[in-house]
């Protein structure tokens, strides 16, 4: 594994115990220039993960707590009349940061949600006729509560698609939980985190991730997976071409983190739960299957060509 990345994984893993796979997925998502959605119950460490990632990467961090009365201006910023200069002065909102944690994104109204999601897609913000670029890199980590909880506005599928990955954290296992209970307060630990990487390095890694080689055989596998979801009646809709591209980007980032110059099927299988979990709705099941189960079924049913 790439040294710096390894260091980050270890460091973040020291705070979020027993969740190395999720940490690596989150990093892969970042390297693939995608945004991350973490879905889980309150209190499993969503915010802590986002925080730890930002700190370890040495990136500027802002947090927006989404509530039902949040307005777009609260996210994007607002122009206020400045008596000294005699004109309107733009006060940037919390979105103007390298890592933005959108906490409990499904508690806000669709209007506020879409303000965030548009910024995510365009990497720029347009208010009052003026377009402002967001900082680079720009990485949104949104958390959301499972949608069956009270007082939520579930994100529609089209907006879920904006997130490259969605991961679940889940309860820690016994051992990790004991370590957590015995250990220091997480907030104090966060304070002590040292950045392991600077922005130019991250940009370079992001660029490298796009250069990872994908052979024809690997593309065959990706197409086989995507094709299967389109033919199989178990899924409401098959994966879109955008989802296929997302899968490929994520797999490249994963391969890069493993220190390889080419993608192997295992990379695809590793990122599959994060990439397809929120894009594939299964028929016949009332409760929403989690990404790991959906992806596991898919992997089992598609032979590697």
């Amino acid at each position: 594994m790439n040294d710096q990345i390894h260091k980050i994984v270890t460091q973040v893993g020291g705070i979020i115990l027993g969740k190395e796979r999720q940490i690596r997925l989150a990093l892969a998502c970042l390297l693939a220039r995608g945004h991350l959605l973490i879905e889980d119950l309150p209190g499993v460490g969503k915010t802590t993960l986002a925080h730890a990632l930002a700190a370890s990467l040495g990136l500027g961090f802002q947090r927006i707590q989404f509530t039902s009365d949040l307005l777009p201006a609260d996210i994007l910023g607002v122009s206020i009349y400045d008596r000294d200069s005699g004109g309107f002065k733009f006060h940037p909102g919390p979105i103007f940061a390298q890592v933005v944690l959108a906490d409990e994104v499904n508690r806000a109204t669709p209007k506020a949600q879409s303000a965030l999601l548009e910024a995510m897609e365009e990497h720029q913000v347009t208010t009052e006729g003026e377009t402002r670029r967001l900082p680079q890199p720009f990485f949104v980590i949104a958390t959301q509560n499972p949608s069956h909880l009270v007082g939520t506005f579930p994100l529609p599928e089209s907006q879920l698609d904006r997130f490259l990955m969605r991961i679940e954290l889940g309860y820690p296992d016994n051992e990790a939980e004991r370590a957590l209970l015995q250990g220091q307060d997480r907030r104090d630990l966060l304070e002590e985190l040292k950045p392991c990487m600077d922005v130019p390095t991250l940009s370079q890694l992001q660029h490298q991730a796009t250069q990872v080689y994908t052979s024809g055989a690997l593309l065959d596998y990706v197409q086989a997976l995507v094709g299967f979801t389109r033919r199989c009646p178990d899924y409401v809709n098959g994966l879109s071409p955008r989802a296929a591209l997302a899968l490929l980007h994520a797999a490249r980032a994963w391969a890069l983190m493993d220190g390889r110059g080419h993608v192997v099927p295992e990379d695809v299988q590793a990122v599959l739960p994060g990439v397809v979990g929120h894009r594939l709705a299964t028929t016949g099941e009332v409760t929403r299957a989690n990404g790991v189960d959906v992806a596991g079924d898919l992997i089992r049913q598609v032979a590697i060509p």
Binding site: V264, P265, E266, Q269, I299, R300, Q301, V302, A303, I304
Partner: peptide
């Protein structure tokens, strides 16, 4: 080998 098993796995 499981048909869906990657070579390294």
């Amino acid at each position: 080998r499981d048909p869906a098993e990657g070579p390294s796995d």
